[in-house]
Amino acid sequence: MNRRDFLRTTSLTAVSTAVLGSAAFTDSFGAELVDNPPPKKSFDEALKEITGGKAVSDSDKVKLIAPEIAENGAVVPVTVEVELPIEQVKAIHILADKNHNAKTMSVYFTPANGKAYISTRIRLAETMNVVAVAQLADGSFIKAQKPVKVTIGGCG
């Protein structure tokens, strides 16, 4: 390689890395940055999306276990169990009524599960109600809800 070729390739590489480096906005952890947050979805919209406008009745068959006071809103353990035979339960939906996106999680079951049960950890931005909606095989919906007090919010 002669001197001219060497200079040409190195300068090109330097230019391309500089351009690429400035084009991709990343923070210190390498996460991508954007101008706008994702669209908001209110509790009513989320509930309508799940039920299609059908009435949802309260039921003690839906057992919702969540803490009364959550010190850290970023990690709130939530357990939902529907005390009906698994053949009668199609899905469990977990909603948090004041979150940016109220729909948190939907879980769909088949008889191979043996039990309609889901346990996970969710984020809560502030003090709000956690709602568990169970979709039954006959097309009806039942729910349970519980207020959770949050000391430190978990959604930014």
Binding site: P38, T104, V107, A112, N113, I118, T120, C155
Partner: peptide
């Protein structure tokens, strides 16, 4: 479970980081 899809879930951003999920399966 084998070839059969037994459970599926839809998650949103309001699930905590490093998501922990537990559910039941009938060991047939």
């Amino acid at each position: 479970y084998g070839d059969e899809k037994i459970t599926w879930m839809e998650l949103s951003g309001s699930v905590s980081a490093n998501p922990f999920i537990s559910f039941y399966v009938k060991a047939t």
